[in-house]
Amino acid sequence: MLRYLALKIGRALFVVWAAFSLTFVLLFVLPADPVDLLFDPAEVNAVPPEVREQVAAGYGFDRPVILQYLTRLGHALTGDFGTSVQSGRPVVPTILDVLPSTLLLAAGALALALVIAFVIALAATSARRAWVRDLVEALPSGAVSVPVFLSGILMLQIFSFRLGWFPAFGDRGARSLVLPLITLAIPVSGPIAQLLVRSFATEFRSGYVTTSWAKGATRGGIIVRDVFRNAGLPALTIAGITFGNLIAGSVITETVFARQGVGRMTQAAINTLDVPLVQGTVVLVAAGFALINLIVDLIYPLLDPRLRAALATGRAA
């Protein structure tokens, strides 16, 4: 058990470190002159050489790469990712400022996506007619196929410009959260629904369901009492993918709805080549991903007695 724990934690830490190193190579080593990245592409040729040298010294670009790497890594370990080139503020507070807004959006969208996914899976399992089932099962694939920016624009067009139910832009109050929430929930719900439809179908054919049929349970009773409880668990295994979808979706959702947040900040940072801010964001996202996978790895055995037994005998390590 302890070995399992150490292994999982070690892997999570490795992912975060490697994300840091990868972004360091991409952003600080690969560009021929990283100083170029620090200036607006349109103005880079107008910058006098003295200023360039000063900036290079300020960021430590004049020192050997390996020293730069170790310094940056050392600072990053204490939570210091340098200062944003655009605003001059430290990276971590800049991210923390906009984080709550994105967390709110992502948490709400995730909750809504789970509801949509469970409704689709329940509808597909309880549908008796083949064509209804086929139609419901086609929904998740449709949900991931419609580009987020298109569904966002459609929502804006219908619900804010035509019907005037919700404000079109900004992030004031709960009403402005509704449209971005739905927009983000649609693509996130797709993969979860696909997984649930499959695991509901598997569970529905399993032995304990046959037993319940034999005992005279109704179709609805079986779905709610037996299948629902057992089939929900596998959804946890794609928590990491869901997290990635939420991040990627929030970049576009926040852009379409002009909302403040990590996604929009990342986009702005990339547009202005704000290298320290980009690196900070990527490492933060990778850390979030690693943490979520770690939590899933650790609590999954607690939730699934079969896995717990396997772990106790040391087979799953």
Partner: peptide, 15 residues
């Protein structure tokens, strides 16, 4: 694992 830990849209944006 590392490449999977960074959402592909974000990685593509950085690249």
């Amino acid at each position: 694992d590392v490449f999977l830990a960074i959402p592909s849209l974000l990685l593509a944006m950085v690249v």
